[in-house]
């Protein structure tokens, strides 16, 4: 049984990682082939680091992810504070069901529906055919990030003691100060999780971006998509390998830091 368990786990992970191994291996290929390995070379890494389109797209992706994550976190956290205080009723139910729509709707429908809105406004009100760009992508990304922020912050708000903020106010704190000094630190883990989730969702998003982006502002997934329409050279693999390794390193650091801080709190206790 134990052997079966091990073999099974190994096979599933082999399946999950097979294309990634292939990709890492062929990013070092000395020819343009992505199926026959001819010899070791770093030329694709060199090439991609000098590819202006890829570098611009990478910069765009990061800018968009940072902006949309920050905006979604601020709007979403404020919204959660409000929603938590709403009395139970039709309005609260309506707000919560609306929040669930972007999470349950297929991404292609979300993307298409926003594109229709933008195109309609662009043609009808702004009289332009090129409304799609950074602005529309930012709106789209904030929209699909918001539910994740709200759904990670709301539970934390429910866990915090409501008397805390009131006590602070009784002690002479202004309501706004009470929020920043008492409530926000208590819900910070939820806010941070929402922020990080938004950031990674935005970095990785292709489908919704595909329908809301214009030629003027392209993110990495969009560039990758247009490149995979033709034959992919190993330079795209090299780029993905760089991103993959950076995320891996970030995750390992994050885990070590988390473990260290857990050990610290355990010692204190």
């Amino acid at each position: 049984m134990k052997i079966f368990n091990r073999v099974y786990t190994f096979l599933v992970f082999l399946f999950l990682y097979a294309p990634i191994f292939v990709l890492l291996l062929f990013s070092f290929n000395s020819t343009t082939s992505t199926s026959v390995f001819a010899g070791f070379s770093l030329k694709w890494y060199n090439q991609i680091l000098h590819d202006a389109t890829a570098i611009t797209a990478l910069r765009n992706t990061v800018v968009l992810a940072v902006c949309s994550a920050l905006l979604a976190t601020v709007i979403g956290t404020a919204a959660s504070v409000g929603i938590e205080k709403f009395r139970k009723g039709a309005f609260k139910t309506a707000v919560m069901s609306t929040t669930n729509i972007p999470m349950t709707n297929p991404e292609i429908v979300t993307g298409v529906s926003m594109m229709l809105l933008f195109v309609f406004i662009g043609r009808g009100i702004l009289h332009t055919d090129s409304v799609l760009g950074f602005g529309t992508m930012l709106i789209a990304h904030v929209t699909f990030n918001l539910p994740y922020v709200i759904l990670t912050v709301l539970p934390k708000l429910r866990q915090t003691d409501k008397n805390l903020a009131e006590a602070a106010q009784d002690l002479g704190c202004k309501p706004l100060n009470a929020f920043f000094k008492v409530v926000l630190p208590a819900i910070m883990p939820g806010v941070l999780t929402g922020l990080i989730m938004s950031f990674t969702l935005s970095l990785d998003d292709f489908i919704i971006s595909y329908f809301t982006s214009g030629p003027g502002f392209q993110t990495l997934p969009i560039v990758i998509f247009s490149m995979t329409k033709k034959r992919v050279k190993p330079d795209m693999y090299a780029l993905s390998a760089i991103i993959f390794v950076s995320i891996l390193v970030l995750l390992i650091i994050y885990n070590i830091v988390q473990q260290k801080s857990e050990e610290k709190t355990n010692k204190k206790m």
């Binding site: 992970f13 097979a18 990634i20 990709l23 990785d204 990495l220 997934p221 995979t228 795209m236």
Partner: peptide, 21 residues
């Protein structure tokens, strides 16, 4: 973490990589 890790790599590239396989 190992289950989640592949999701952080563009699904376009991973799908394309299956073509090579």
């Amino acid at each position: 973490l190992l289950v989640m890790l592949p999701m952080w790599m563009s699904f376009l590239i991973r799908t394309y990589s299956w073509m090579a396989l």
